[in-house]
């Protein structure tokens, strides 16, 4: 216990369109350009479900399905993986619509909006899309949501001796909530984690029991602005370390003034 392999990664944000295409940007070989994300995301969902879902659900499912692509291609039947979903604020588009409806005469809250309002909506759609019945946990730790999710995923992987899919996502809030909470761009990342050291791992993570107050920043100012502009993008120092295949320590914010220290081995 205390180690975790990263088996695969899913990534989606402006200019980071999938893990393979993002690597040159994350190594610094290519400049970062915030190209818009594609419209068709989360295609794993059946079309009738996809029509009803929101941008939040599609973005979360997109990175989840990318990280799990090898499993979907496998012949063997799989029960699936445990999942941990981390998001600071969930689906603010839905919350905005409900709060707006509540200001109108007779308060016409849409039943669909209401059942999409729970924080675990993407987890529910993921289970429906994959048929996976293994447990899922949805959490928030505000700007520390990614690191809190990683810690939960690690604890879960060690406890169950099973693979865990961690999905972190946040999207810009609509006006007027956008004035209260600034998230500058959509960002979602998924890590498929294994408590065993697998042959084809992308990296090995260790969790030393030490805390530090200062989070690892990125050299590239545009990427660092993205890191600070979306709670899920607080994962970027980890992703950059993985793609550079170098042993490195990173500190990811997990609360006010506290960071989770990670040791990354190629």
């Amino acid at each position: 216990m205390n180690e975790l392999s990263v088996e695969s990664i899913g990534l989606m944000a402006p200019g980071l369109i999938g893990w393979p295409a993002s690597q040159a940007v994350l190594t610094g070989a290519q400049p970062y350009q915030a190209d818009p994300i594609p419209a068709a995301l989360g295609t794993l969902l059946p079309a009738n479900e996809r029509r009803r879902t929101t941008a939040t659900v599609k973005l979360a499912l997109q990175v989840a399905q990318e990280a799990m692509a090898n499993d979907f291609g496998a012949v063997r039947h799989t029960l699936g993986v445990h999942t941990v979903l981390a998001s600071s604020g969930g689906d603010s588009e839905v919350l905005d619509k409900i709060c707006t409806a509540l200001t109108q005469p007779d308060r016409p809250v849409s039943p669909t909006q209401f059942h999409h309002s729970v924080h675990n909506t993407p987890a529910g759609y993921w289970a429906i899309a994959t048929g996976y019945t293994l447990p899922s946990l949805s959490l928030s730790a505000y700007n520390g949501s990614f690191a809190a999710g990683l810690r939960e995923a690690a604890a879960l992987a060690w406890m169950e001796q099973a693979r865990v899919l961690l999905v972190a996502y946040d999207l810009p809030l609509p006006f007027p909530l956008s004035e209260q909470r600034q998230i500058i761009a959509p960002f979602a990342v998924a890590l498929l984690l294994n408590p065993l050291d697998t042959a084809h791992r992308l990296a090995l993570l260790r969790f030393p029991r030490e805390t530090t107050g200062s989070a690892t920043a990125l050299e590239n100012p545009a990427l660092d602005a993205l890191r600070l502009g979306n709670p899920a993008a607080r994962s970027l120092p980890l992703l950059c370390a993985i793609v550079r295949h170098r042993a490195q320590r990173v500190a990811l914010p997990v609360g006010e003034g506290e960071c989770l220290t990670l040791e990354i081995q190629p």
Binding site: G90, H119, N120, L137, A148, R151, E152, W158, M159
Partner: peptide, 23 residues
Amino acid sequence: LAVSTACSSSAKAFASAYRHINA
């Protein structure tokens, strides 16, 4: 952390706590 899984939230908080202590 806040566990937010609708009406199972605070039951699952026990499970999450168990895992964190175990880890």
